[in-house]
C-alpha cells in the first residue's frame, strides 16, 4: 500500500512535469519579445493585429454556426432514436463514430472533389458556399462528441415518460421538443457545444484546404514567419480550450439528475 502510494506520486509528478514544462516554456518564450526583460509585448502585438482579429472573429462565427447545425442534426435524431427507433441505434452510433476513423483531411478532400465549382452542388463556387461547407465539415468532425453528450443527457432524463406526460397534457411536437426536451438536455447540449467550440476554433486542415480565412491557418502562417507572437497565441489558444473545458465542468454540476434515482 505504502509502495503503491509512492509510485502513484512518482507517476503523477512525472506526468505533471511532462505536461507543464512545455506550457511554462511557451509562456516564458512569449514574454521575451522585448530584449532583456519580460514583457507582454508579444500579446499586445498579436491582439492588436487586424488579421488576428479578423480570423479569430471568423472562426468564432463559424464555431457558432457549427454548434447550431450540430444541435439541429443531433438533438432530434438522438431524441427520436431513444423514443421511437431504438432499432436504428447501432446504425446511428456507427455513423457518429465514423469521423474518428476517417481522417479530417480525407473528408475535406472528398468535399473538394464532390462539391467543386463544376459539380452539380457547387458549394465551392462561392464564398458563402465554401463557408457553409466549412461549417458542415466541422459539424461532421464534432459529430461523435455532440452525439455522445446529447445522448448521455437524454439517458438521464427518461425521455419517454416526459414525452408521454407532455402528450397527455395536450402538447404538440414543437412544444415537446422546445419546451420539454431541450430545457432538460440543455446542459448536455451546452457541453457538446463547448467541446465543438474547442475543436473548431483552432482547426487547420479543413480551413486551410477550403481556403477559408480562419484562425488555424493564420496561426500556421504566423509560426512560419514570426518568433514570439506564436508563443503568445499558443497560450491564448490553450486558455480558450481551458475555458471551454472549465465551462463544461461547471455546467455538469447543474445537470439534472435522473428522476428515477435518489441523489
Amino acid at each position: 500500500m505504502k509502495a503503491g502510494k509512492f509510485w502513484a506520486w512518482v507517476v503523477f509528478i512525472l506526468g505533471a512535469a511532462y505536461f507543464f514544462i512545455p506550457l511554462i516554456a511557451t509562456v516564458e518564450f512569449s514574454l521575451r519579445m522585448r530584449r532583456g526583460v519580460y514583457s507582454f509585448d508579444a500579446y499586445k502585438v498579436v491582439l492588436g493585429d487586424s488579421q488576428f482579429q479578423a480570423t479569430f472573429i471568423f472562426s468564432v462565427v463559424v464555431a457558432i454556426f457549427t454548434i447550431l447545425l450540430g444541435v439541429l442534426i443531433v438533438v432530434p435524431t438522438a431524441y427520436w432514436i431513444r423514443l421511437r427507433l431504438p432499432q436504428l441505434r447501432p446504425v446511428v452510433e456507427f455513423i457518429t463514430l465514423l469521423p474518428l476513423v476517417i481522417p479530417a483531411i480525407v473528408i475535406v478532400f472528398g468535399y473538394i472533389r464532390m462539391y467543386g465549382s463544376n459539380s452539380p452542388l457547387p458549394f465551392l463556387g462561392s464564398n458563402l458556399g465554401a463557408n457553409a461547407l466549412l461549417v458542415i465539415g466541422y459539424a461532421a468532425l464534432a459529430l461523435p462528441y455532440m452525439y455522445r453528450a446529447v445522448d448521455t443527457g437524454l439517458r438521464t432524463i427518461d425521455v419517454r415518460t416526459l414525452t408521454e406526460a407532455a402528450q397527455i397534457l395536450g402538447a404538440g411536437w414543437g412544444t415537446i421538443i422546445t419546451r420539454v426536451i431541450l430545457p432538460n438536455v440543455l446542459i448536455a447540449v451546452l457541453s457538446g457545444a463547448f467541446l465543438t467550440f474547442a475543436i473548431v476554433i483552432g482547426e487547420f486542415t479543413m480551413a486551410s484546404l477550403l481556403n477559408r480565412p480562419a484562425f488555424g491557418p493564420y496561426l500556421q502562417n504566423l509560426v512560419a514567419n514570426r518568433a514570439y507572437e506564436p508563443a503568445a497565441l499558443s497560450i491564448i489558444a490553450f486558455a480558450i480550450t481551458w475555458g471551454c473545458m472549465s465551462l463544461i465542468q461547471i455546467l455538469s454540476r447543474f445537470a439534472p439528475r435522473s428522476a428515477n434515482r435518489p441523489n
Binding site: A25, V223, A237, F238
Partner: peptide
C-alpha cells in the same frame, strides 16, 4: 495543432 507544435 499549431499551438501544441509551438509549445514543443
Amino acid at each position: 495543432g499549431v499551438p501544441l507544435a509551438f509549445a514543443f
